[in-house]
């Protein structure tokens, strides 16, 4: 077994264990913390796949910001903080059927794809190439600027929703 296989198994334990914790934790706050573990595991997968910038973004945005937002959302709702929540409800039979059907469909599709692998090497300075592509008029300068407008719209929307109360 190679080193990267050992690392992959460790990361899988972290990511899947965190995901199971999210589903099974009776306390919603602990579920949010388990979600952080799952996010970190996924960031490790990105490092393993030599997508270092994506790994950094995963840590910065998902662990650093989205998880904080979720934890704030829990602390802002009184019922969530005060009592243990019940992960089961009376619709669990239907949920099991839907989840099993989705799992079967995914397995069916994934087993039919032959997963072509490219021979090309991962560029050593992928972040420089990404930076060049982001501002080059031949590549992504328009999406780059549109992303700014998208963030502006999200910002205005957040202010309007939060200021209503």
């Amino acid at each position: 077994m190679t080193v990267s296989q050992v690392v992959f198994i460790l990361l899988s334990i972290a990511a899947l264990g965190g995901a199971l914790g999210v589903v099974f934790a009776r306390n919603l706050f602990r579920a949010a913390l388990a979600l952080v573990l799952s996010f970190v595991g996924v960031a490790g997968f990105y490092v393993l796949l030599e997508a270092e910038f994506l790994a950094m973004v995963q840590i910065l945005v998902y662990v650093g910001a989205i998880a904080i937002l979720i934890i704030f959302a829990i602390m802002l709702s009184r019922r969530m903080m005060s009592s243990e929540t019940q992960p089961w409800n009376e619709q669990w039979v239907g949920a099991v059927v839907v989840a099993a059907a989705l799992f079967a469909a995914l397995v069916f599709i994934l087993s039919r794809v032959d997963w072509p692998a490219t021979e090309a090497q991962v560029p050593a300075d992928s972040i420089s190439q990404l930076g060049q592509a982001l501002v080059s008029p031949d590549f992504y300068v328009l999406p780059f600027e549109v992303a700014s407008v998208l963030l502006l719209v999200a910002l205005v929307g957040a202010v309007i929703i939060a200021r209503e109360q």
């Binding site: 910065l60 945005v61 780059f144 992303a147 700014s148 939060a162």
Partner: peptide, 24 residues
């Protein structure tokens, strides 16, 4: 706190876009 958290995410994503630009 929620508005602050949302604002933080938005400017966080802004930095993510500016980071590759700053490198090159």
């Amino acid at each position: 706190y929620y508005l602050y958290a949302v604002l933080f995410i938005l400017f966080d994503v802004e930095i993510v876009f500016l980071f590759p630009w700053a490198v090159v």
